[in-house]
Design a protein around this nucleic acid. Structure first.
Length: 237
DNA sequence: TGCCAGGCCGGGT
DNA sequence: ACCCGGCATGGC
């Protein structure tokens, strides 16, 4: 498929997701700093658990960089316990706020004033921040036009038969950024819709009928036993 | 009951 | 340059 074809398909998928789910109002947070905390806490973790951890931090008055730095690692770990991996994540949160204070004096404005590519590089150097977390911070806290690639995105588009040549984060990102306009609100909504779809999808087999993203052959519909959402979008790892 | 969730790091080939 | 185990809670 040529670039035009991919672009058309990406837009068609986006429209169908919009029609099905409507606006997602992402990221689920009150302020940019909370987005960053959530981005670290949600690594390989269900959001419901992360919401509890963040509620604990807020109730304890610890949802600021300085307040977080004043906690010991075990104290922080105890507060974020519901989100799992709490020792690992306490260390990662501390690493971020330490760097954020030293490098940017706790100023998100200063941080996001940097060139996006440079800031991404800096973020990746912070312990506990990988590509998805860095991009989530850039897009959802900084409103930079950076497309976030996550497990849902890969699974859904693999299922749809729309994949990059190389299976790397950068190549997946290119699939979207090379074929869509550079537009932060669009990237924001697209990724949010993909997560919404991914969360809703069940894992039943055989696949459902009436798939909204990828029409099925007649033969496939014969074996389908239930309606969307279904395993059509979530195949096992 | 067992599998899974909006990854990332570090040590071993 | 990959590959893989470890990290941990709560929901279905």
């Amino acid at each position: 498929m040529d670039g035009q074809g991919i672009a058309r398909r990406l837009r068609a998928i986006y429209r169908r997701l919009q029609a099905r789910y409507g606006p997602q109002h992402w990221w689920p947070a009150r302020e940019p700093f909370e987005v960053i905390v959530g981005a670290i806490l949600t690594q390989n973790t269900a959001w419901t658990n992360v919401a509890r951890a963040i509620a604990n931090l807020r109730a304890a008055g610890r949802l600021t960089p300085t307040a977080l730095r004043q906690l010991t690692e075990p104290e922080l770990a105890a507060l974020i316990r519901p989100c799992g991996y709490y020792n690992v994540k306490a260390r990662r949160l501390q690493a971020f706020v330490k760097w954020f204070g030293e490098r940017y004096r706790n100023s998100l404005d200063k941080m996001f004033a940097r060139e996006t590519a440079d800031l991404r590089h800096e973020l990746l150097a912070v312990h506990g921040i990988g590509e998805e977390t860095a991009d989530s911070i850039l897009l959802y806290a900084g409103e930079k036009p950076v497309f976030v690639i996550d497990a849902y995105t890969r699974r859904i588009f693999t299922r749809l038969g729309l994949t990059p040549q190389i299976d790397s984060y950068a190549a997946w990102q290119g699939l979207f950024t090379d074929n869509l306009p550079t537009d932060a609100p669009l990237y924001n909504e697209y990724h949010a819709l993909l997560v919404r779809l991914g969360k809703e999808a069940c894992r039943a087999r055989p696949r459902c009928r009436d798939c909204c993203l990828n029409p099925m052959s007649r033969a496939e519909k014969e074996t389908a036993t239930h309606d969307f959402p279904c395993s059509a979008f979530i195949s096992s790892k």
